[in-house]
């Protein structure tokens, strides 16, 4: 009984963590704007946390470079299973406008598996919320599979 309760609340109230990889802040502030009164993702039961060990969903913005890819991998490894990753913005998808720069490795999926891609430069809050909702469906499926 207790197990099914946890399972249900996990998918109904996912806790997200935001990590800025190497973004220009455009997508970051849009992610933060999602939490504020106009967009307010808390109405979906989503809470932003600062500790990867509490988080279910990881939002990543920006390009991956040689230094922060270790941090990104570390944070991803610390998150408990099951987990979902949402890459936000053109940079998080492919490297965007910076793809040729010497210190840029590329998109987030070169380092960790990504479930949902949210395009845009910067991605609009509506698109981010849409991406999070799409990510939640995948996350619920993963919770189901994990049993």
């Amino acid at each position: 009984m207790f197990g099914s309760f946890i399972k249900k609340s996990r998918a109904k109230s996912p806790w997200i963590m935001h990590f800025d990889c190497g973004s220009c802040n455009g997508c970051d502030i849009e992610v933060l704007a999602c939490l504020t009164p106009l967009y307010d993702v808390e109405r979906f039961g989503i809470i932003n946390v600062g500790n990867p060990k509490h988080a279910d969903v990881l939002l990543v913005t920006g390009t991956v470079n040689h230094r922060n890819k270790k941090v990104l991998k570390n944070i991803y490894d610390q998150m408990p299973e099951p987990k979902a990753v949402i890459a936000i913005g053109a940079c998080g998808l492919t490297g965007g406008v910076f793809r040729e720069a010497y210190n840029v490795v590329g998109g987030v999926d070169k380092v960790i598996p990504v479930d949902v891609y949210v395009p845009g430069c910067p991605a609009k809050p509506e698109a981010i919320i849409d991406g999070v909702v799409a990510g939640l469906a995948k996350f619920a499926q993963k919770v189901e599979e994990a049993g």
């Binding site: 800025d20 990889c21 190497g22 973004s23 920006g62 390009t63 470079n65 230094r67 922060n68 941090v71 910076f98 040729e100 720069a101 010497y102 210190n103 840029v104």
Partner: peptide
């Protein structure tokens, strides 16, 4: 520093 370094000054060459 260096977690966000991309090297975009160099992009002016291409």
């Amino acid at each position: 520093l260096g977690y966000v370094h991309r090297g975009l000054e160099k992009l002016c060459e291409i």
